[in-house]
Design a protein around this nucleic acid. Structure first.
Length: 441
DNA sequence: CTGGGGAAGGGGCCC
DNA sequence: GGGGCCCCTTCCCCA
């Protein structure tokens, strides 16, 4: 006969002991703040502590001290509260840090939930963006107060938030992997997020198979960055560089991202990081990349999630970054290089044409085009007429490509960039689009 | 097979 | 934090 309340009761008791510093035999120092805990609980919850404490098991008579500066006390509070309650207080503000810390501490359950949280938020974010972009209201973009706080609902038990799906009755049982299933985070579009994740991974596999193969080989991690980048990041502490050498890199989402692996050295009782370590560094939970700004990490995460929120309205190709889209648009569709590829003379849409040869597009003046033979080279009218031939007048007004053929090169560039319209669309559309445009790389 | 060029994409960093 | 620029690497295509 099993008494279901026993687990939660036991954990509650342990949590009470922790709060009252009863039988606590482990001190964790995070940026100067001391957290008291029980070794056996930490051992059971964290791969990092398991390794740390197992190597220190012979000295059980002495209290263990661990020191961290890789994450903030607030973040560790969230982690420790989870360890002792099974409840993870995730918010949009802390999820990156919590995931990074969980990666560090090798708490796979926490990582999984953080992943789901991020994925779901991205999905919600996309839908919200769609809504706002469809309004074509620039004010809505710039005025943050009008946008819903996508992460405002913390994932806390009994929060009453529509995004909170923790059942208070399920209380403290979630510390075991089996019981964890009770604590699935089910946001508005959890299922969509999972599908999105799977799709992103499939696409990423197809597109970047080579890179992933390289990434998945730890021995090659050191060659992942260019020499310049290595030099740039060399100011990082030993903490980072050592981790990059040790941590197995696996870009697959379904695998467990293993974070920093400390505690393997002789000094396992106390582990401090060098003081010169920048106070806040953001570690990618999927790879060993570390950035200084959260925004950079957010941008970097797109290369793992495969999120491409910026489609080119001219050709449908999607980009993960706005500047890449702008660059693509200027290069491909705006025909920045208004020179004849053969005679190098300046040409306009009147005096020359864009021709397509294989996958290459370039301009030839009418004279060179005649020399080469206009029949031998298909004139690529699509790029120039794509939008003009559209029946959508609004689209035509947005993408005034070649609208004024006498306009100077500089003018075209400047005005064109101003006309660049970014549209955010649902991923399901992308899949259909991908089928329609199989040549998109 | 090889080298050059174009394009994409990732990171650092400034505004 | 977002936008944008610069730099770099990688991949692909072509001569």
């Amino acid at each position: 006969m099993e008494i279901s309340s026993h687990q939660s009761h036991l954990l509650q008791q342990l949590n009470e002991q922790r709060r009252q510093d009863v039988f606590c035999d482990c001190s964790i120092l995070v940026e100067g703040k001391v957290f008291k805990a029980h070794r056996n609980v930490l051992f059971a919850s964290s791969g990092y502590f398991k390794m740390l404490l197992s190597q220190n098991s012979k000295e059980t008579s002495q209290p263990t001290t661990a020191t961290f500066q890789a994450f903030s006390p607030d973040t560790f509070t969230v982690i420790l509260d989870f360890v002792y309650s099974g409840r993870l207080s995730l918010t949009g503000q802390n999820v990156i840090e919590v995931m990074s810390a969980a990666s560090f501490l090798q708490m796979t359950d926490v990582i999984s939930v953080c992943k789901t949280f991020i994925k779901s938020s991205l999905d919600i974010s996309e839908k919200e963006k769609d809504r706002y972009f469809s309004l074509s209201d620039k004010d809505a973009h710039s005025n943050g107060t009008e946008r819903p706080s996508l992460y405002s609902s913390g994932w806390q038990e009994g929060s009453g938030s529509p995004h909170s799906h923790l059942n208070p009755e399920q209380g403290a049982g979630g510390i075991s992997g089996k019981a964890w299933s009770k604590y699935h985070y089910h946001p508005v579009s959890h299922r969509n997020a999972q599908q999105l994740l799977a799709k992103h991974e499939q696409r990423k596999d197809a597109i970047k198979k080579t890179k992933h193969l390289r990434l998945s080989q730890p021995s090659d991690v050191g060659h992942f960055k260019s020499s310049k980048r290595e030099a740039r990041t060399s100011d990082s502490s030993d903490h980072v560089s050592q981790s990059e050498e040790q941590a197995p890199v696996d870009a697959e989402m379904d695998s467990t991202p293993v974070g920093y692996q400390y505690g393997q050295g002789p000094d396992v009782t106390s582990r401090s990081f060098p003081d010169e370590l920048p106070r806040m560094r953001f570690k990618c939970p999927y790879c060993t990349h570390v950035v200084k700004r959260k925004a950079d990490l957010k941008r970097h995460l797109r290369c793992h999630t495969g999120e491409r929120p910026y489609p080119c309205q001219a050709c449908g190709k999607r980009f993960s970054r706005l500047d890449h889209l702008s660059s693509h648009f200027r290069t491909i569709h705006q025909a920045c290089k208004l020179i004849c590829r053969k005679c190098k003379r300046h040409v306009t849409d009147v005096t020359g044409h864009v021709v397509q040869e294989g996958t290459r597009r370039y301009r030839l003046c009418n004279e060179c085009l005649a020399e080469v033979g206009i029949d031998s080279l298909p004139v690529d009218l699509e790029a120039e007429q794509h939008l003009l031939s559209s029946s959508d007048a609004e689209k035509e007004s947005r993408w005034r490509l070649g609208e004024d053929e006498n306009r100077s090169y500089v003018e075209i560039v400047e005005d064109g960039s101003a006309d660049l319209v970014i549209q955010q669309v649902d991923d399901s559309e992308e899949e259909e689009e991908k089928e329609r445009k199989p040549n998109i790389r």
